[in-house]
Each structure stands twice: as structure tokens, then as C-alpha cells.
Amino acid sequence: MSAIAALLIFPGGVFLLLVGMIYEWIDRKLVARFQNRMGPRWFQPLADTIKLLAKEEVVPDGVDARLFFTLPVIALAGAMTAALYVPLVGFEASYSFSGDLIVTVYMLSLLTLGTGLAGANTLNRFSLIGATRTLTQLFSYEAPFLLALLGPAIVADSWQIGEITDYAGDHVWLLVTQPIGFLVALIGLMGKLELPPFDAPEAETEIVAGALTEYSGRGLALFHLGKGVELVIGLTLVAAFYLGGVTHPLIFVAKTLALLSILAGLQALMTRLRIDQTVGLWWRYGALLVLAQFLALIVWEGVM
């Protein structure tokens, strides 16, 4: 019974979706305010979702209809499953086993993968290019992002999210001891969510809406919800690992919101990178830096 509640109501399901929308709203509002605009009202993400859900879903010719319908569901399901293993809003994770960190990270990638496949599934030329870009970008930030999350795992000597957060709670903030990992994790999160400057896969002025160009109605709504969920989970992970573990829920939420405002600021201040520049940036700097730190950590652990 409690398992079903955990899946459908709290911390998964409805609660998660709502938190995702609230975080999305805060992000949009902050970017708008940075740009001296009004920004959307608080219910806008919810209204968007309801509108999209109510709309007719047009299935374009030449797609595999089964894939077209199931991919959004899989993408959202992946993101929601990941939520079960992370300490959402500062509460103990619902499920936990040794190695759940890796599972969580891969569940999160399911959304990106789903987006890419959804684009490749259609014949639309913008979608195809968008899908190529989405997947290219996935390969560029994925490894550094994973390494950045593994840094805390190495020092905590565990692959279980709960134990890592416990370790992070008992020691100085890992932000201080592993600053590079923190930066890479935060920026990798932006890449994962395709936020500016990593929004080349959905660059409106080039390829319309990228991989999701052909999606309307329900599928689009599910992908959007997935994005919101992923934003929450990503922020939770980074805050729990690097900003002193799981604490009182209110303080924890404040920490994630602080991270969110940094993300919003970066979004506002950056110019979109071309896809080749994104790849270059990640492999030339991101991966190398985080790898250097990773090696240093291993050596350090070995010496201790």
C-alpha cells in the first residue's frame, strides 16, 4: 500500500509533477526578471500542461505510431523512477539499494534518450537534426556529469545515494573540497536539461523545436513534465552531494532554490553554443578537469 502511495502520490507521482512545475515556474520567472520582464504567472506551467493534455495529438505520417506514443511515457517514467532513489525535498529516499546512484543517473538519461529517439522516429528534417544534436550532446556531457557525481561517491566509499548524503552531511560541504566536481555537475545539469547555453538541440531559430517538433498534445506534455521532474531530481542530487547532505526539509529546499537561481542566472547571461562548441567545451575542459579531480581523489583515498 505504502509502495503504491510512494509511486503515485508522495514522493513520486503527483507531488513530484507539481514540484517540477513549481521549479519550472521559478526558473522561468527568474530568467524573466533578469531580463526585466514580467514573466509568467504562477500557474502557467500547470495551465500549459492542462492545455497540452487536452489538445488533439497529431500523429504525423511516416512514424512508427507505437514508438511515437510510448516514447514520451517511457521518458517520463524513467525520470519518475529516478525520483524514488533520491532524497526529494530533504526526505529520506523511498527506496535504496547499494548502487542506486548509477541506476538513478541512467534513469535520468532515459528522458534524453527518449527525446532523441522520438526525433529520429519522425521524418521531419528539423526533428532529425534535433535528434542528432540531442544524442551528440548526451555523449558530451554524460561522462563528465557522471564523474562529477562519482566524486562524492569515491570519498564516501559507497555507491548508494543515502550513504553518500550521510557522508556529505557529516563532513565539510563537498563544494569546498571538490569545487570542480560541483561546477561540472551543475553545468552538466544544464546540458542535461538542454537549458541555454546548451539549447542547440532545440534551437528555435534554426530547427524550430528540435527533436520534438512533430509532437503536439499529450506527448509534448509528458516530455515537458519529464523535464520538470528531471530538474528537481538533478537539483536535489547536486544539493545533497555538494551542499552538506540532507538536512531539514526547508533548509534543503532553500538550497535547491539557490542552485536554481544560479542556473537561471547562467541561462540568462549565456549565448547559445553551437553543437560543435558544446562538444568541444565538454571534452576539452569539462571532462579533463573532472577527470583530473577524480584521479586526485582516488590517489588521495589510496594514500589515506
Binding site: A32, R33, Q35, N36, R37, G265, L266, A268, L269, M270
Partner: peptide, 16 residues
């Protein structure tokens, strides 16, 4: 991020 000053001052300013 050469426009950071605009961004920060906009936070305390009324939207245009």
C-alpha cells in the same frame, strides 16, 4: 557574462 550587472539590477527594479 558581460550583462550580469543588468541582470542583478533588474532584480530590484520593476519590470519594464
Amino acid at each position: 557574462g558581460s550583462m550580469w550587472r543588468d541582470a542583478l539590477s533588474a532584480l530590484v527594479r520593476e519590470p519594464a
